[in-house]
Amino acid sequence: MIQNLLDGVLTGAIVSLGAIGLTMAMHMLRFANFSYAELMAIGAYVALVFDRLFEALIPAARAAIGPLSLNWALAAALVVAMAATGLSAVAIDRLVFRRIRQRAGPLSMVFASFGVALILRNLITLIFGLKAQLYSQEIAFAVILSRDPLILIKPDQVFVLAAALALMLIFHLVLTRTTFGFALRAVAENPALAQVAGVRLSAMVAAVWMIGGALSAAAGVFYALTNHLAPTMGHNFLLPVFAATIVGGIGSVHGAVLGGFIVGIASGLALQIMPSGYVPAMPFLIILAVLLLRPHGLFGEEQA
């Protein structure tokens, strides 16, 4: 029980990271982006490439950091992956979504995002193959915190949770303490008014994609670090990430963070109340519950 709670928090941290950018993009551009979760896979695979590259170039970087299975090469690759994924997200927007935005409405974009997701996922398959891949062959062992009840935790889990929370904190500070953050929030709340006030909308859109892409890449790498890489990994997170945004209320960054943890913990605890086969439907049940009880989410504002 406590173990499940703990594990749920970790999955939740990854879902939260993925949901932050999605909720902003969905709010600002007003469409449900089905390709968004693929950014996690892009990030994880970019990190894989650079991890291998750095390891080959600088053998010293192969040393693991403390008790983690993360080594210096992967830590550096994570930074590269965040930047690269952010840039890809901007590029995808420029290439596809912006054009469709200009010609058609948001619902066309929803479907376009279906198509983009399919293309991205299969491009990754084409390049990296269907095989599951790993950053490190070594299995990192868990530390026993308590024997009765049995509670186990892996150093990697602690690191991932800490790193995810740190990233969220940084983003929170940017959002609440900087001019850029104010501009971002202004645009999200009222694009037209913000433009009148002199905020460049297109720059803000790019910024949202950049931030969302970077956070998703981190989520992807963290996931792959504690599990493995597969071309479908992003797709597998799609429903949990959507559920997190709905729980938090579309547009609310803090709501997305909280929603991510709620979805993660609920999925972790799901096994206590339902047979394991039904667990994939858990995020959907959460969505249903929110729609029944509080349709606009925990932090969402009323809008039709």
Binding site: N4, T232, S267, A270, P275, V279
Partner: peptide
Amino acid sequence: SIAITDGQPSYRAEVAEALG
């Protein structure tokens, strides 16, 4: 007897359940 369904983000809960 625990089912492992394809395409899930994490199997940690199932594994922890089995471990228990």
